[in-house]
């Protein structure tokens, strides 16, 4: 396959950026999108140019490091992470636009790399449980109802990639935060901090400069892990409940 890539190039956080065009040839349909970018970078290095910076780590779709907006879609046209997106989703001769996550809370570090530490600070505000450290506790010591376990697991799937923020027209982190709230607040292990967790995490989310939710549903459509939109309503319910309890 021969492709034309239009990639966002930005030297550093303060430099102005622009879209730059590159031709890549010899792309196999079985390559992942990141392998295609590796091919482009090898070519750029051989030509003595600066390779395109992009985030990646496990390349197995479970770490949440990769973060590209491909043709306007976070993680591209398939409902998966960029590393699990294959070139068979594109046709020979295509022009593909590659941009970084866009949100003021996720400033661009270089090219396609953005700083997602705002998510870490939301987690620090309440994405934990109070538990004695040491050996793993006896699994049957705390009974968890099956529906609660399923609900928690569905939300524990969130890998914190930030696609929800990238897809949201308001740059809102509601789906990410709601995944954490739903995951921990439904479990008995998470109940001691049930109220403070949701109040503190939502307050940190606002402080980080993420936008509000207008229920466009773009986040849940983009989420590679299928965190559902009703999770946001469930978090709102938890937040209002926590506010009433003071």
């Amino acid at each position: 396959m021969k492709l034309t890539l239009r990639v966002w190039r930005q030297h550093n956080a303060d430099a102005p950026g622009a879209m730059a065009s590159y031709e890549v040839d010899g792309i196999s349909q079985d390559m992942s999108f990141l392998e295609m970018l590796d091919t482009l970078n090898e070519d750029l290095i051989l030509r003595g140019e600066d390779p395109v910076a992009f985030d990646h780590d496990c390349r197995e779709g479970i770490c949440g490091a990769c973060s590209l907006v491909i043709n306007g879609d976070a993680h591209g046209p398939e409902r998966t992470t960029t590393c699990q997106l294959h070139m068979r989703s594109f046709a020979d001769g295509d022009t593909i636009d590659v941009e970084p996550w866009r949100a003021s809370a996720f400033p661009v570090v270089k090219d396609l790399v953005v700083d997602r530490s705002a998510f870490d600070r939301i987690i620090q505000a309440g994405g934990y449980i109070t538990a004695p450290t040491g050996a793993a506790p006896e699994a049957h010591a705390t009974p968890v109802p099956k529906p609660a376990a399923d609900h928690a697991f569905e939300h524990a799937e969130c890998i914190g990639c930030g696609a929800c923020v990238a897809a949201c027209p308001n740059g809102s982190a509601m789906l990410f935060t709601s995944a954490k709230i739903n995951h921990l607040n439904v479990l008995p292990q998470g109940s001691p901090e049930r109220e403070s967790r949701v109040l503190d995490m939502v307050a940190t989310m606002d402080d980080e400069g993420f936008g509000g939710c207008t229920l466009t549903g773009e986040c849940a459509t983009a989420c590679p892990k299928g965190i559902p939109l009703p999770s946001i309503a469930a978090m709102n319910k938890e937040w209002l409940r926590a506010l009433r309890k003071g």
């Binding site: 941009e99 866009r102 003021s104 308001n170 936008g211």
Partner: peptide
Amino acid sequence: DIKARPVKYAHKRRRA
């Protein structure tokens, strides 16, 4: 909301 998304995507598509 507008402040939270200061830079628009170059690749436009109809949303919502």
